[in-house]
Design a protein around this nucleic acid. Structure first.
Lengths: 280, 280
DNA sequence: AAGTCCCCCATTGCATACAATGAGCCACCG
DNA sequence: CGGTGGCTCATTGTATGCAATGGGGGACTT
């Protein structure tokens, strides 16, 4: 009765970018969206595993609702379950993965897309970016102008990418992310980087899905970006903050409109791996 | 030259509250600040370990700068290193712990108090709470009034606690936290809960230290709280948001003033545990 | 054929084993 | 007596072992 109905099937044969086995025709090399993390993360493997998995999720390679199994990831990535476990734990806390079982053992699946998530995430990121934009707008003029120029460049790239046929969802969502990183990182301290770095890819995940819809509109978003750039250029903190918050508010409906209510469940019962063997 | 100079000594013989070995005379039973986390966290042990450690840090029982050692925690808590590792990883990402080594092996210490942290944390939490307060202020009148009454009750408790001699830093920081939780949780979705739940105890940690200073002022803070309550009561979203943001801005200087620049380093060299043995 | 029960195994949770690293200390040398 | 280089062990990083759980499918009954 309380069954989670959106659990999808397995995600096999997925190109990763991490282990460059295969690169899709329409692929776009990600600029390692992980923020320049001053002090290096704890270790290599858990961090790397986290990034690879998150990239797969954000860029739709592991679809919403798919089960994610520790041993399977470990096998595919060629590491033991321990670092995978650490990565999964982090992905749970950042809400890329959600538990799908009731009992003690927690089985995991990629979080579904929901309209409530859009509203909440967009509001939160609006607040944070609004503050960041206002801080950026009061930087010394030379830095402001440099940021504005960079943002303008990215925005033009975005316009070009939106005009392509077919569109490249990887590239589009990546450029949108880079635009916002462009002014947020300018003034962010370590806490902001940490929070924003965990949150922004959540948004990017929705942007990616948005980009796969043929009728997706980018013109309005690009125009709103220009307002933000102008405010930063002229050094008007309040206007910059308002422009950012307005941008995100307007984006809520644009995005919600193309979110499918819920992906379908698997054909019969919950799929279980046929056999996840040891390293072989 | 680049040595981390604030690494303090070990934290032994610390009362926990978790394993109720010993309760200090001036102690205050914490209302498990962990947010009501709808879907249960992954498991028992890592979550529980995380909470216990975070509580020890927030309430000053493991002092800023102290080394935290996996095996030692495991021993003291009576669990294996695996769940401890998961907890530590989370505490790192939420910036309660920081790496103190340069090489590959990451040794950990409790994050130092810094004035930059205060500024950044207070600004971030101000943005988030400002939004939350504005949402709370537009709730239906009956709920608003209920929230306002609850906030008023907590604020009076806080005033009473501030008048005690000697003051109880545990109780004071706990009440401050509960005041803010009082309106944030009212409208928070899962993402906000997750972010705020990781961030708020960081602030509480500073509030705790603040509370240990005899000359700490609470009157102004309590008065600002009343402004917030009034705005929520009358349903004025903009005023509520501004009241909250102003409150946090004013708190920045109050708090920074009592932050010692840096705790001192250990007498000679970095202390190492004499021997952390197996379960015995 | 439909229903029910039970057993099996896929998967997780936790503990432990093993390898690697690098900081301090001691011995030795100047 | 001060410097220095190598050794040792405290501590972390990763892998693996082992127990527990519970969902699903197959076997059995009717």
């Amino acid at each position: 009765m309380n069954t989670v109905s959106w659990i999808a099937n397995r995600w096999f044969a997925i190109s990763d970018g991490g282990s460059n086995l295969y690169r899709e025709p329409n692929s776009y090399t990600p600029t390692s969206m992980t923020l320049p993390n001053s002090e290096s993360a704890r270790t290599a493997l858990p961090e790397r595993t986290y990034e690879r998995l998150r990239n797969l999720i954000v860029r739709g390679r592991i679809p919403s609702g798919a089960r994610v199994i520790e041993a399977e990831v470990a096998l595919r990535f060629g590491v033991s379950r321990t670092p995978v476990r650490e990565a999964l734990s982090r992905l749970i806390h950042e809400r890329y993965l959600v538990p799908v079982t009731s009992g003690k053992r927690t089985e995991l699946a990629v979080a579904p897309f929901t309209a409530e998530d859009v509203r909440e995430l967009w509001e939160i990121i609006g607040s944070l970016e609004g503050y960041a934009a206002s801080m950026t707008a009061i930087l010394p003029e030379n830095r402001r102008l440099k940021v504005a120029d960079e943002l303008r460049r990215i925005n033009l790239e975005l316009r070009a990418a939106a005009a392509e046929h077919p569109r490249n969802a990887d590239k589009l969502s990546e450029l949108q992310t880079r635009f916002h990183l462009g002014f947020v990182l300018e003034t962010a301290g370590p806490h902001m980087r940490s929070i924003y770095g965990a949150l922004r890819p959540q948004v990017q995940r929705y942007e990616w899905i948005y980009g796969t819809h043929a009728e997706a509109d980018y013109a309005r978003s690009i125009a709103e970006h220009m307002t933000i750039i102008a405010a930063i250029r002229e050094g008007n903190a309040e206007r910059a903050q308002n422009a950012v918050i307005t941008h995100w508010h307007k984006a809520i409906s644009r995005t919600s409109d193309v979110i499918r209510p819920a992906p379908f469940a698997s054909p019969r019962g919950k799929p279980r791996a046929k056999s996840v063997k040891r390293k072989m």
